[in-house]
């Protein structure tokens, strides 16, 4: 396998820029709190993998969404496990991002020249929260329905553009099958794509600028 990788890497040249992953110099004063970003990324990878697996059995339709979740629990091997892994990773993902932000804030790592990476990080949190909001509707049970009813109604309270915003979110006057399919599309394709792009920028900047050391 290694031989095959080396052969193809003569064309791709992936190895050389990543060789220093294990040999990157770290500043003084680094401790285990600097792992929080990595923990968040690991959770994102877990979310991506389990989310893909759930999408195999999930049916994003008004009539079948809840039934497909029940089917996943009752009939699919490890179905409950994979869904629970997705749910808990999602919760912990937000927790890890927030704790990571606190760490960056305390260590003053948001200051020049890293201000752009702070902004990218905040956008990552926004995308993560949006993923949480859209994903919450997908089980299509009472809790999901009413949470989205309330959440989209909040968007409706925005001065001026509120009602238009609410129509865009719901795809109609009420939370309905139209809402479900658009939340599904946003949750499964849109936001993960944006997230990948943001994370690429985030990591590239960390690589360029290095890790900010201790206090």
């Amino acid at each position: 396998m290694g031989w095959l990788f080396d052969r193809s890497d003569r064309f791709f040249g992936l190895k050389k820029p990543h060789r220093r992953v294990f040999h990157r110099p770290l500043p003084e004063g680094v401790n285990y709190f600097f792992c929080l970003g990595g923990i968040a990324f690991t959770l994102f990878l877990l979310l991506f993998a389990t989310g893909f697996m759930l999408a195999i059995y999930y049916v994003p339709s008004e009539a079948d969404a809840y039934r497909s979740i029940v089917h996943l629990h009752r009939e699919v091997r490890l179905g409950t496990f994979v869904r629970s892994l997705h749910k808990w990773s999602a919760h912990l993902f937000i927790v890890a991002i927030v704790l990571h932000s606190v760490r960056v804030f305390v260590y003053k790592a948001y200051r020049h020249p890293r201000e752009l990476n702070w902004i990218v990080g905040v956008l990552t949190l926004v995308v993560a929260l949006a993923s949480g909001f859209t994903g919450y509707l997908l089980p299509w049970d009472q809790k999901a329905y009413w949470a989205t009813q309330v959440g989209t109604a909040m968007a409706g309270e925005v001065p001026g553009v509120g009602s238009a915003l609410m129509l865009m979110l719901r795809g109609g006057v009420d939370v309905s099958g139209a809402t479900l399919t658009r939340f599904y599309a946003v949750h499964v394709v849109g936001l993960p794509l944006i997230m990948c792009l943001l994370l690429w920028i985030h990591f590239h900047l960390v690589k360029q600028q290095g890790v900010k050391g201790g206090l």
Binding site: A49, M53, I56, E75, V76, R77, L78, G79, F81, V82
Partner: peptide, 14 residues
């Protein structure tokens, strides 16, 4: 481990 879990997950039980 993930591959084993994924293979079990996608194989229909009945």
């Amino acid at each position: 481990v993930a591959s084993v879990i994924a293979a079990l997950f996608v194989t229909p039980r009945r």
